[in-house]
Design a binder for these strands. Sequence first.
DNA 1: GCGGCTTATTTAAACGTTTCAATTTCGAGG
DNA 2: CCTCGAAATTGAAACGTTTAAATAAGCCGC
Lengths: 362, 362
Amino acid sequence: MAQRDGQQCARPTLFDVAKCAGVSIATVSYALNGRPGVGEETRRRVLDLAKEMGFRPNRLARGLRLGRAHVLGLLIADIANPTYTEIAAAVVNEAAVAGYQVFLSHAGVHGELQRQQVETLLDQRCAGLIFTSVVEEDRALLEQIHAAGVPIVQVIRRICRIHADFVGTDEEAAGYAAATHLLELGHRCLAMAAGPRTSSASRLRAQGVRRALAGAGVEMPARWSVEGDLTVCAGYALARRVLARAPLPTAMICGNDVMALGAMDAMVDAGLRIPEDIAVVGYDDMAFASSRLIQLTTVHSPHAEMGKHAVRRLMERIEDPELPVQEILVKEHLAVRRTSGNALCGASISPYPAEPEEIRSR
Amino acid sequence: MAQRDGQQCARPTLFDVAKCAGVSIATVSYALNGRPGVGEETRRRVLDLAKEMGFRPNRLARGLRLGRAHVLGLLIADIANPTYTEIAAAVVNEAAVAGYQVFLSHAGVHGELQRQQVETLLDQRCAGLIFTSVVEEDRALLEQIHAAGVPIVQVIRRICRIHADFVGTDEEAAGYAAATHLLELGHRCLAMAAGPRTSSASRLRAQGVRRALAGAGVEMPARWSVEGDLTVCAGYALARRVLARAPLPTAMICGNDVMALGAMDAMVDAGLRIPEDIAVVGYDDMAFASSRLIQLTTVHSPHAEMGKHAVRRLMERIEDPELPVQEILVKEHLAVRRTSGNALCGASISPYPAEPEEIRSR
DNA sequence: GCGGCTTATTTAAACGTTTCAATTTCGAGG
DNA sequence: CCTCGAAATTGAAACGTTTAAATAAGCCGC
């Protein structure tokens, strides 16, 4: 039994509170959950007592009884990628607002490990799952999850014709904007180091680039259109390959900022100046992109907002599983910086606050 | 009842399997858990059937019964910081190996939000908690968790005299090594933009720097020793302050790489060349640090290894709560690059593989 | 004073495990 | 043939909730 006052007992249960309050367990449960049918005076007494005793509901028991835990699963392919961590942060925060905890899974893309993690997530009776980078091969898995009655939201990447909501940006438009920007600067020799074809986002972006080029009547030789993983190393290798022999392009669009970083390294190695000899555009606007030493022109997409939307949508669907599948697009924009010729002039585009923040000397 | 063969039923339980196998629930449980006292023939039959039916144990039920879930809580102050995400990745992976899932909490440092998240974590009956950035104010919270019988591992930062293991690096030695490196290069005018004093790691590092200086008989004017948050903005503001008036230091040690990035921006703004006019040393060796455009000299600490150790230690302690408190130090090392004068010569320190990886042209 | 109605409260059954204790089975030894 | 003991198996309680259904308690009008 819970000893009253002084030290609260280790972990009082409904039973303990009920005993102390001299009522039944059911009454305590009803009172704590704010359900009707409990006398005003009783309710107050129970609430006060529960607080005093430090009662906290056991979420396992609740989940077991309800057949569903107040828990979400977040699947991230690559946690080292800032894009995903920004989303993760937003997801965790927004979930907390709704009283949900988030299981983090870091299992790459479409493998045995991923399948295993998903199984475990289902074993935990997650109320919903958020996938940050599905590939076509995951279709069967997603369908199985849907069959199990667990709603899914896809973020950034997606597979089509599947019963799952999607939150992302208009990647095609982003690619179009990036290419158009370079075309307007007068570039006619564009290269593209795209992300993997398996990513719907990368595919669409490349598509947008091609549409812009076609519109301007500009051709991109096959040798300049390469694709690889979204890593520094891949960016380096791809750029090296493109720059291996003349003629050289005057601009390069990269699958993301990290690839751009690698590509720029290859350009430096090749003795090229950026942006005088070659312009570079990235994607994601990672933290380092706005650094003075880099100043990478890139497409900024609001990842935090995407994470937030993903959770909200999941909440809606958990509430009402019959909702029609929805596609939520958030607005992205091109951040023009030095690597496409926009030399930093003045503090107008400085990432730093005008007034220095608090500084403590010692 | 579970229909056999063909489509497995939604989610068979022990009961369903038992019914199909014609044995009791208890037998199935014993068989699946590999406990003794089950006939060999029965065991095989049950195992096969469970697999065929797609049985998966309900982790909520198990956790409820056991009074403890196979779940860890990971508290990260700032998920945007790559240091922490590297740790997170390792933690999630290593936990998976042990059959544990990881709850991710992103609740800053010592606030109402953090307390709330911890409470929820305890409500979920986490078997253990990993804290990545405790501050002294968290002491009461950690003690409360310990009192609740939930083991804790502190990573990177720590508070002393508390019943919790610690995994980190020898920060004092790292600070000493960084400063010694600069002293050996002939620098005598060193500045330091340290991380916040509330971080044990930052404190120790600063201490190591001072020890090195004292050993060399070098003085660091108070005006050159500043501290701030581990952000780009803080780095910029601090460096700006130090560089505001002559005399200027010839080298600056920063609290981490991100701060160094900001500080270098301030140096560029001040018309200084790196490393000719001023050398810079960071800490963490984040992804961008080795980029050709940056080549930041920095202290590389093996975060993944730390995450792994943290989980392993937690497992040991969950196994045997009576273990004496342990302090695990992993080795870090100084990566000397351009910003301290080590110009990149040849591919000897290139971060890229010699052979280009697979490239697909299209 | 008593059915009938509303409101407050309780009883008890789930949810799916694990595990102690009790029961059955079966072969060996007497 | 009977008994004993080990091994296999089962029954049932427990973990801490939620909730449908049953019960108790008021209260009104006739």
